[in-house]
Design a binder for these strands. Structure first.
Lengths: 113, 113
DNA sequence: ATAATATATTCCCATATGGGAATATGTCAA
DNA sequence: TTGACATATTCCCATATGGGAATATATTAT
């Protein structure tokens, strides 16, 4: 079936370094395409193409403002990845086992509220 | 430059669902190739190929035991991804902001010990 | 209508992919 | 040595990739 497309899910989308940079920049607040082009020093078409991938996996949200398109981060869809990795946290550090499991418990409780 | 190979880094390696399953299974303890074939219901060559990718990015360690190859998880190399995602934790939940930042602080201190 | 600006799309290409199938390698036992 | 078992490798193929370059679309101002 060949490799999954980058638009298959968030895991595949964030495997690209430039897309991770875009995500990091957007974490500081929404940006227009032009602003992203400036900050990341990439060509405009590549930025637009990366944003298209991120939008398809719902990691960013687009809003129109005149001729500009404003993109903002939808970080919620990063959480499943974070949760999956959380299962291994106890393997790379012993010191915070109890604190991390406590945190995980709080998070699970939080889901149903 | 085309898409980065799956062996480029941990991000690309874990983008494949079967490889994530392998990682999850190995989190419970080391396994031989044959055991992975049984548990995951994949053909042996595919398991071996996935393990090869995981080994190249140092997510698993291999040990010989007779005719068997025993693979174990090297979870440390998942931590950078977890750390990167941690930066966005405050965006998907407000309730545990202080606890998470406290945890992050503890972790950073822990690195130098 | 025309021009200017902002963004998106298309066409190009070399490259790696994951699975199936077949085969090769390695390791032990008799 | 021969065979049995465990694992790795090779060959096949359809498919998507990210960047460059060029072009298309959308929106506003004049």
């Amino acid at each position: 079936m060949a490799r999954l497309p980058t638009t298959a899910d968030a895991y595949n989308a964030i495997a690209e370094p430039q897309r991770r940079k875009i995500i990091s920049v957007l974490a500081d607040g929404e940006k227009s395409v032009g602003e992203l082009v400036e900050v990341l020093e990439l060509n405009q078409p590549q930025i637009s193409k990366h944003l298209k991938v991120l939008k398809e996996v719902d990691l960013v949200i687009m809003r129109k403002d005149g001729k500009q398109r404003i993109y903002s981060l939808n970080a919620d869809n990063l959480k499943p990845i974070y949760d999956w990795l959380s299962d291994f946290a106890h393997l790379w550090t012993e010191r915070f086992d109890r604190l991390e499991s406590y945190l995980a418990t709080l998070k699970k409780e939080g889901r149903n509220e």
